[in-house]
Design a protein around this nucleic acid. Structure first.
Length: 411
DNA sequence: TCTGGGGTCCTAGGACCC
DNA sequence: TCTGGGGTCCTAGGACCC
C-alpha cells in the first residue's frame, strides 16, 4: 500500500510577497497586475478572497469587488526561488519527489516509516520544517493515491494536514461536489449536473459503461477517480524524474488591440526569439511551429506547419510564424493576442540539412553567442534586426517592444 | 465579469499508405 | 467502378490545471 503526500503551498505568490513586504500581511492583496490592466488574478490573499476575489478572475472585476485591495504585478523570479527552496526540503523527506507546478508537489513516502515515523508525524515534521526554513505555510494531504492526496490537501486548507486512511477513500469523496475532482472543470460539471450528478458519490454509483458512452475515455477515468483511483492522464504515472517538455510557447496580449503590421510582425519575431532560446536551453529542436491569434471579438484560432527538419533557430521559427500569420490575417483586422508555440521535439545534435548545412552552422554559433550575451546583460541586449524593424515605425505602449527599442548597452 | 500565460491531454477529420 | 479496413501523420480546436 502506497503512502503519497500532496504538499500544496497556501496562497503561495501572496505569501512570498509578504516575506519581502511584511506590511502586506493581513491585507487584501491581489497578485497579477494593476487594477485597470488587461489580465487576471494570479493569486489573492485570504483577506481579498473574503470579498469574492479569486484566481483567474479579471483584474478589473477584482477591483470592483475590492477597490481597497493592493494590486501587485508579482515577482516570478522570487516564486521560482522559493519553489526551489521548498523542493530542497522535500528532497530530504523522500527520494521520490515530483513538483506538479511551482507551488505543489507529490512525495512518495512509502517505506520511509523507519526514518520519519508514521505518516501523520512525518507530515507534521515536514510542515514545520517548511514553515521554519522558508516562512511559508502549506497544506498536506496524505492518501494511498495521488488523486485522493490532492483532494485531501485541498480539504485541509489552509495550513492543515489531512490523512485519508486506506479503505475510507470512497466515504471521504462521496459528499464532495464533483467539481472537486481534478479534471472536472466548468464544462464537465455542467454536463454532469444535467444528468443529475451533483456529488462524487452520485458519480461512483453510476456504472462505467454509461460514463464511457457519454464521456468517452475521460468518462472511464472519471469513474475511477470517483472511487479514489489514479485513473488516466498523468495521474497514473510514477512519481519521479521529470521528463523533457512536450511543447514550448510564448504569447502576448496587447494592452490595446492593434492592426499595425509592423508591430504585429515585430511581436512575432520577439516571441519566436524567446521560444528558440528556451529550446536551446533545453537542448531541443522542434519540427512543428504554431501561431495563435486572438482578435478583438476574443475569437482565437491556431495555425500550424510541420517543417521537414527540426530547428532551434530564431530566424527559422520566426520566418515560419510570420508566414503563417501573413497567410491567415486580413489587413485591417485588429489583433488582441499573438502567440508562438513549438512542438514535436528531438534532441539537438541531429543531422544538419545538407544543402544549408554551412549557413545553419554559422547561425547556430551566432545564436549561442547571443544567448551568452543575454545571460550577462539581460533579455533585451540582443535583438535580431528583423525583429526590430517594425518597432521603430510607430509609438507603442507595449513594454515588450519598448524595452527592445533602447537596449541596455553591454558595458 | 470583459476575459493572462505556460503547460498537458484528448478528440476528430482528412491525407496517405498498404 | 460507389468500394474495406487499419495505421500513422498532420491540423485544428477545446477542456483543464496552476
Amino acid at each position: 500500500m502506497s503512502i503519497i503526500f500532496h504538499v500544496d503551498m497556501d496562497a503561495f505568490f501572496v505569501s512570498v510577497e509578504e516575506i519581502f513586504d511584511p506590511a502586506l500581511k493581513g491585507k487584501p492583496v491581489v497578485v497579477g497586475g494593476k487594477s485597470h490592466e488587461r489580465g487576471v488574478v494570479s493569486a489573492a490573499s485570504y483577506a481579498a478572497r473574503k470579498f469574492g476575489v479569486h484566481s483567474a478572475m479579471p483584474l478589473r472585476t477584482a477591483y470592483q469587488l475590492c477597490p481597497s485591495a493592493i494590486f501587485i504585478e508579482g515577482h516570478p523570479d522570487r516564486y521560482r526561488e522559493y519553489s526551489h527552496r521548498v523542493r530542497a526540503i522535500l528532497d530530504r523527506f523522500s527520494p521520490l519527489v515530483q513538483m506538479a507546478s511551482i507551488d505543489e508537489a507529490y512525495l512518495d513516502m512509502t517505506g520511509t516509516e523507519r526514518l520519519h515515523g508514521p505518516p501523520l508525524k512525518a507530515a507534521h515534521r515536514l510542515h514545520e520544517t517548511v514553515r521554519a526554513e522558508t516562512g511559508l505555510n502549506c497544506s498536506i494531504g496524505i492518501a494511498a493515491s495521488r488523486l485522493v492526496a490532492k483532494v485531501s490537501s485541498d480539504q485541509a486548507k489552509p495550513n492543515g494536514v489531512l490523512w485519508i486512511y486506506p479503505g475510507l477513500e470512497a466515504q471521504f469523496l462521496a459528499p464532495l461536489d464533483i467539481r472537486k475532482i481534478p479534471g472536472v472543470g466548468k464544462v464537465s460539471e455542467k454536463r454532469l449536473l444535467e444528468i443529475g450528478i451533483h456529488k462524487v458519490g452520485d458519480l461512483a454509483a453510476l456504472d462505467d459503461k454509461t460514463l464511457e458512452q457519454r464521456f468517452g475515455k475521460s468518462g472511464l477515468a472519471l469513474a475511477g477517480k470517483s472511487r479514489g483511483l489514479d485513473a488516466g492522464g498523468w495521474f497514473d504515472e510514477a512519481i519521479g524524474e521529470r521528463s523533457d517538455p512536450k511543447s514550448i510557447s510564448h504569447e502576448h496580449t496587447f494592452s490595446i488591440d492593434t492592426d499595425d503590421e509592423g508591430l504585429l510582425h515585430a511581436t512575432l519575431s520577439k516571441l519566436a526569439e524567446m521560444v528558440s532560446r528556451r529550446l536551446r536551453e533545453h537542448g531541443l529542436q522542434a519540427r512543428t511551429v504554431q501561431i495563435k491569434v486572438r482578435n478583438q471579438a476574443f475569437e482565437t484560432y491556431i495555425r500550424a506547419r510541420t517543417l521537414t527538419a527540426a530547428t532551434d533557430l530564431d530566424i527559422e521559427i520566426g520566418r515560419e510564424a510570420r508566414t503563417l500569420f501573413r497567410e491567415n490575417w486580413r489587413p485591417g483586422t485588429k489583433v488582441r493576442l499573438l502567440g508562438v508555440h513549438v512542438s514535436q521535439f528531438s534532441k539537438t545534435g541531429g543531422q544538419l540539412d545538407l544543402l544549408d548545412g554551412d549557413k545553419k552552422l554559422r547561425w547556430t554559433d551566432a545564436m549561442r553567442a547571443a544567448d551568452r550575451l543575454r545571460d550577462r546583460y539581460g533579455d533585451d541586449a540582443v535583438t535580431l534586426a528583423g525583429g526590430m524593424r517594425g518597432k521603430f515605425r510607430e509609438r507603442t505602449h507595449e513594454a515588450l517592444v519598448d524595452k527592445a527599442r533602447d537596449p541596455e548597452p553591454p558595458s
